[in-house]
Design a protein around this nucleic acid. Sequence first.
RNA 1: GCCGGGAUGGCGGAAUCGGCAGACGCAGAGGACUUAAAAUCCUCCAAAGGGCGACCUUUGUGCGGGUUCAAGUCCCGCUCCCGGCACCA
Length: 825
Amino acid sequence: MQIERDVPVHAGNPDRYDVKAVESYWQAQWEREELAKTEVGDKPKFYCLEQFPYPSGHLHMGHVRVYTLGDVIARYRRMNGYAVLHPMGWDAFGLPAENAAIKSGIPPRVSTMNNIAYMKHQMQEMGLSLDWSREVTTSEPEYYRFTQELFLLFFERGLAYQKEGPVNWCPSCETVLANEQVVEGACWRCDSPVTKRDLRQWYFRITDYAERLLQDLEGLDWPTEIKVQQVNWIGKSVGAEVVFPIPELGEKISVFTTRPDTLYGATYVVLAPEHPLVERLIAGKPNADAVRRFVAEERVRSDIERTAETSEKRGMFTGAYAQHPLTGQAVPIWVANYVLMDYGTGAVMGVPAHDYRDWQYARKYGLPIRVVVTPKLPVPEDLVAEREYSLPGVLVDSGPFTGMGSEEAKAAIAEHLAERGLGGPRVTYRMRDWLISRQRYWGAPIPVVHCPDCGVVPVPKSQLPVLLPENATFTGRGASPLAQIAEWVNTTCPRCGGPARRETDTMDTFVDSSWYFLRYTSPGETDRPFDPQAVAFWLPVDEYVGGKEHAVLHLLYSRFFTKVLYDAGWVPVQEPFRRLLAQGMVVYRGAKMSKSKGNTLSPETILSEWGTDATRLFILFAAPPEKDFEWTEQGVEGAYRFLQRVWRLVMREEAVPSGDTAVQDDAVRRARARAVKKVTEDLGDRRAFNTAVSALMEYTNFLYQAVGSASPPVRREALETLVLLLAPMAPHLAEELWRRLGHGESVHRQSWPTYDPRWLKEEAVEIAVQINGKVRARLTVPADLGEQELVAQALADERVRAAVGQGAVTKSVVVPGRLVSLVVR
RNA sequence: GCCGGGAUGGCGGAAUCGGCAGACGCAGAGGACUUAAAAUCCUCCAAAGGGCGACCUUUGUGCGGGUUCAAGUCCCGCUCCCGGCACCA
């Protein structure tokens, strides 16, 4: 067979190819041929997406890993006959650019655009098959005008609102944070301890969607790990609301409980320090001032302080009493730090016998403990002497409910309360509404105007975008930069035409990224965020690749957005990402890379030293995608050696004597069929890239031994198959070899290889013979040998006979092609 | 504390539906080629014991039990590691 040695231009010899020359040549060529351009037609669609990066200035190894994984999937799907959408863009709003402006004076937009240009260049050097004609940048007016338009949609639908209340404040970022962005009491981005402030802020009503966000997880092909995190975050609790009247005020306190069956054991009621009724309850009471001091103390404590001393429950008696809704007894009302204002109703009933916190609290303050649920009858003397009894059981001392089981009683008591207007069945969620306003410049301005006469007025769609002013100054001190630009803030009311002030807060950048995957389907739209038909065609994303750190941030927000847009009739899907590949971290020298540990690796150095293909191959081979991946020099060198080995295998072909051929034809065909089957399965549904690479290595090793003894057509088919199977993972080398094998069209436009299943059948197989569970012999037999024949042959074997000895075979199990198991007694 | 995931050679990992544990690679050892080295090609490589040898025996997938002809895989009870949530009523 013919190998063309001097196509097309570059250096390299049969022993070693010139990585740089080959890679840069084909990158330029592919761009010219628009290889990654999104095709439309009658092919089935495949939307392959990786989380777009924040343009920090440089790619890091985590990016290299995500984009490699996505690119392999995209290339594989193209060769399998799909119209693939594989776009890229920039999550370009955000604090770092603004902080850089404070430090260096470079305007955020300038530094952002520079960073984008450099990172785009890096991605191009990685040879990623991205359709750059669909690039989106969230910080450009062409994009954020639609982020604003979507805000207006939320506003119209009652899903965007302002609320005054305690919020998470990051003193270092000088802005508020959503609950999801507070990680263990600290800011998710800068790690500073988060404090509380009372502010009027904008929220998205994500809690309206809690139940759907929970229910629809079920149908998603996502890792359990991520789904579980979302389930926990949403935090659904089923229970009852119980109303405790306060006769002296003519008011009532609502509490939420998951254990209505323990209601008769409630001996007191506790309010959160922030609870609105506190002041009215204590007014005129002897210890009113002491309670006020206590409340004030607790309110200034940050979350971390409050949770740091989890065991120390502090509280005070208000001096007021409520009425038990079922017994009518007076129960004291307390205020305590262990009750949280943001969960449930901000008040709880204290059931010391059956709740561990209430037990501790009652012990500390000498409150009565009353047993109403017991594991057995009679009630053990010491049931709650040492600790609470919180398991289900049988009700005692519970009026008409005495004798019921806990589960039955939960429903019965809730029902009873509902009938009497004292509460009833109720479901609560842990998730809070999404706080989306930020007191910063570099984000999409919230498109509303505050008018002294009309109140909050949305900016009409026709007046979008509300552009960011370019003359902002960045001092890092004081209020948002936008608030300081009088000519920008002062405007006219769209409704009455009178003087009004613009909203000076911008939107959380997670709003920008909650819909970018829709924009990619039709990035050129100028009068709407996206073309509904394009969205209908491409959505949902078939494979979404990204990091686990977004389990309850981006991934939850995007699901919420999609559901809102579905309800508005803008998109036909309720879930944006059908399948999720959550890849692990990149580790170097035993730890996650960080500047402080001094174990960083720059993609620039690595790619120029080893080339894109070797880097990609190593990333794919060293670990399954969802696990952490440790970078090692020896590892990437191994991948590099393998690629050079493939090069030599193909390039040496001309030198192979054409004499004694065809003897290995069938063996080569079988090896080829096995390789195609394995790589196809692994790159497809299994996403087991590591074993796909190992299958190619085995195939290559085999061909080294055998391909020289195959006839020319078989040999060619075997080698071309190797190149095709390698194409998604090592695209540059595969392209070079494909052309050298005499093809005029790109390997990446070829169809994925297939195989005839008959070649999967071996002529002879090795069968293990087990006697009483231990392998005693291995036989090589024809693959199609019948079960009885197989047992007969096994019994005829000398080693088997020796092992059986005088015993009798009482049972035999045959697994075709694998083993014979004999039970001997 | 609760929830989830995991533990397999010196290392990364494989074993997809209960069927020969350790594929593939790295590291290591030996050989070929070379004046030599690098590169390359070939062979060996879980542990212990035995045999000149092809090989044979025993043990072995975090620990202890169990089910089964057969268990890394299933069941029961633990240990440790990683991740998430954490006074959520």
